[in-house]
Design a protein around this nucleic acid. Structure first.
Length: 472
RNA sequence: GGCGCUGUAGCCAAGUGGUCUAAGGCGAAGGUCUGCAAAACCUUUAUUCGUCGGUUCGAAUCCGACCGGCGCCUCCA
């Protein structure tokens, strides 16, 4: 039984989809005004892990991630770079897809764009206006927070307490400082769309209400995003959607903890800002994913190079086992013994870890236990059958590859860059074996060291020498 | 001020009433294997869970106070 911590109820709850086996899930995507940063990457990766796990459990997940392509920051960037807003957003949308692919994040089913849902957005605002939740002040349309009884139910805030806070910007046009924009009147030169209130563009929160309901229904199962979106963004989404539809908007709200640098929030002004793109130049997707997976998704994560390299090191164990069992001589042989091994126990442990609010650190620990015990079994038994290795592979494919995305068997094969290269390595290995037979260790070590400098590590075992290419 | 998160070994981190004399990863030390390495395995590395009280037969886990860190309340994953 899967339980999920629901921000709305502040409790772990049993997960019951509205219409099993189907699960509708919406994750707040990027505003495409820049390359996304490593903090965004954490949310995207953890949402990806959740989605993959739901799929492993047999759910048919419809996964929607919006792309916010109308926004103040995009407009600002377009002015700075003297480009059309559309050019800016399209450029970063392309970059977004490149980066998530590199991070081994599964594609969403739909990536709705705000600019392509203007009709839906306008319609939703009209509905809010009809139901007297919205008011128009000379082309600027605002949501009237005082009309929505449940305002604050997600974030635990109370309207009167919020009002007393002095940090809310005073806007003469608003009835109440907490009211927020549904439709912004166009300023000269800004991208704009036609509407019953004149030329303008949608406010930030309305697109998510319009697009999620359009693609997933008026009430859907899971809505996820970063912690900082709880207020006001998700609070406002609830206010808009529930006011317009008269129905509960979302059953389970999942929020991701922040990624910090030196225990501080990452921000451009502090100069501790890293794009996912830059980190990927130095570290593999698997190492990045691993470093996130080893912390629970909801907690804070202090990000550092040390963390990445320590996770990367740990991953080596997994990769070594994966390449060991993928070797043709191991996997294709006939006969042999199949040692007793409780595969089911590890699967159960993995599942119960993930069932407990997606406890990925625990799940990773199960995989490490598994790897250790498999290695032990391999060391203790000669002549192990193909059957055993296939089961090992099956477990890893389901968990480390399929759910966590920290291992990739297909890479093992494709990383060998060419027939010629491989034959040359085999030739040198054979040469070295001969040298070893003649106890010419000077030569054999020279070959080993030479290959190591080229990024090829040799490993001697009793009957043969295998090699591994290092790709940082 | 309000709301929320958080304090577990050298570092990262799970565990939220008994199976905890606390998982897993990194690091460190010793060992097995090896010509030497590498890989792998084994052993050691928190009698203790921010501090002080309380509840309980029993607490890292519940309650209270205190100390510290972070975030949200304004755009932000």
């Amino acid at each position: 039984m899967l339980s999920i911590y629901n921000t709305l109820t502040k409790r772990k709850e049993e997960f019951r989809p509205i219409n099993p086996p189907f699960v509708n899930m919406y994750v707040c995507g990027p505003t495409v005004y820049d390359y996304f940063h490593i903090g965004n990457a954490r949310s995207f990766i953890m949402a990806d892990v959740i989605r993959r796990y739901l799929e492993l459990k047999g759910y048919r997940v419809k996964y929607v991630m919006n792309l916010t392509d109308v926004d103040d920051k995009i407009i600002k960037k377009s002015i700075q770079e003297n480009k059309e807003a559309k050019v800016v957003s399209e450029n970063y949308i392309d970059a977004f897809f490149e980066d998530i692919k590199k991070l081994k994040i599964k594609q969403a089913d739909i990536y709705p764009k705000a600019t392509e849902h203007m009709e839906d957005i306008v319609k939703l605002i009209e509905e809010l206006e009809e139901k007297h939740f919205a008011y128009n002040v000379g082309g600027n349309v605002f949501y009237d927070v005082s009309k929505f009884k449940d305002y604050g139910k997600l974030s635990g805030k109370k309207i009167d307490e919020l009002e007393s806070g002095s940090r809310i910007e005073i806007n003469e046009e608003k009835n109440n400082p907490l009211d927020f924009s549904l439709w912004k009147k166009a300023k000269p030169g800004e991208p704009s769309w036609n509407s019953p209130w004149g030329e303008g563009r949608p406010g930030w929160h309305i697109e998510c209400s319009a697009m999620s309901c359009k693609h997933l229904g008026k009430t859907f199962d899971i809505h996820a995003g970063g912690n900082d979106l709880i207020f006001p963004h998700h609070e406002n989404e609830i206010a808009q959607s529930e006011a317009a539809n008269g129905k509960k908007f979302v059953n389970y709200w999942i929020h991701f903890g922040f990624l910090n640098i030196n225990d501080e929030k990452m921000s451009k002004s502090l100069g501790n800002f890293f794009t996912a793109r830059d980190i990927l130049k130095k570290y593999s997707a698997e190492a990045i994913r691993m470093s996130f997976i080893q912390t629970h998704y909801a907690g804070p994560l202090n990000f550092s190079e040390e963390l990445l390299s320590s996770s990367g090191k740990g991953l080596e164990k997994l990769k070594n086992l994966a390449s060991k069992i993928s070797e043709g001589s191991v996997i294709n042989k006939e006969g042999g013994i199949t040692p007793a091994f409780e595969f089911k126990r590890y699967e159960d442990n993995f599942t119960s870890a993930m069932d407990d609010d997606f406890n990925s650190p625990q799940a990773a620990a199960v995989i490490f236990d598994f790897v250790r015990d498999v290695n032990k079994t391999i060391a203790e038994n000669n002549n192990i059958s193909n059957e055993f290795f296939l089961q090992v592979k099956g477990f890893l494919e389901k968990t480390a590859v399929g759910v966590l995305g920290i291992l990739d068997f297909s890479e093992e094969k494709t990383s060998s860059s060419g027939e010629l290269e491989n034959s040359l390595i085999d030739f040198l290995i054979n040469l070295r074996i001969e040298a070893k037979k003649e106890k010419n260790f000077l030569l054999s070590d020279k070959i080993r060291d030479g290959l190591k400098e080229l990024g090829i590590t040799l490993q001697d075992s009793k009957d043969k020498t295998s090699y591994k290419k290092i790709s940082t």
